[in-house]
Amino acid sequence: MSWILIVEQSLNGLQFGLMLFLLAAGLTLVFGIMDMINLAHGSLYMLGAFLAATLVQATGSFAAGVLLAIPATALLGMLLEMSVLRTLYARDHLSQVLATFALILILNEAVRIIWGPDMPLSVPAALSGPVQLLPGMVYPAYRLLIIGVGAAVAGALYLLVARTRIGMLVRAGASNREMALAMGVNIRRLFTLLFGVGAGLCAVAGALLGPLFAVQVGMGENILILAFVVIVIGGIGSIRGALVGSLLVGVVDTIGRAFLPLLFGIFFQPRVASAAGPAIASVLVYLLMAVVLYIKPQGLFPARG
């Protein structure tokens, strides 16, 4: 096991973790403030990726396409909030789960009707090569870009929530919903805006990850579950928890997949190792979540009580 591989996989983990944070941030705020489970969050990630793919095609520029996809997705998110999600705030979790599950079905089909099952979106030519990070170590330029953008957006979001007046309102909501509601009429608009921001973040993640995975119907479903794992580990409603949880899940998942099979190879016979290694690696984050909840049933950074 060379140190280069370790650094490289750590960077991959960081990159995935940052993208997870973009998804988890919106999810945890909505969850924390409105006590609302929104499974359709993953659909916004998918919509963001499809919109980006279309707009990149239309404009001929990766950057322009992605930058345009963000406000477009944010707008769709706000429309979704105003039309359906808003009516679910006062309902129980079960209704929220089912209604947003229905939205997944509807949005998946809508995307299939409009775009078909998938869309091409590839790494821009200028970034398709590797860069030399250290002597003897190269890393794909595009992944570095994701890390850079992810870190910048995550940092900005963190400051927004932790330092500004809007952030204060949001945090007040997360720890005291009644107080937030009592703060007046603007709170409705604040939630719509919040949804818009959440949807925009989904678009960033969807557009940036699109070239690495694939822009296809249903792409939001597995990553959505990971985002839920993140916020449950971090503590629902806590932006700090979401950040820590994202990085933890990103790194554990990536490192686990890369090294667990090797590690098993040291201790077990090859036949056992090649079967058990990937199996355990693929459930590592869920094990992590189960263990965290067993020890701290409210997650690592409980936002309430």
């Binding site: 006590d35 489970i37 794992v229 449950v232 629902i236 459930v283 869920y286 909840l293 067993y294 049933p297």
Partner: peptide, 17 residues
């Protein structure tokens, strides 16, 4: 051992496992 949303999510996580 968990309640509410946490129960929903942990059952989901186990199923994913």
């Amino acid at each position: 051992r968990t309640r509410g949303v946490y129960f929903i999510m942990i059952t989901l996580a186990f199923a994913q496992m």
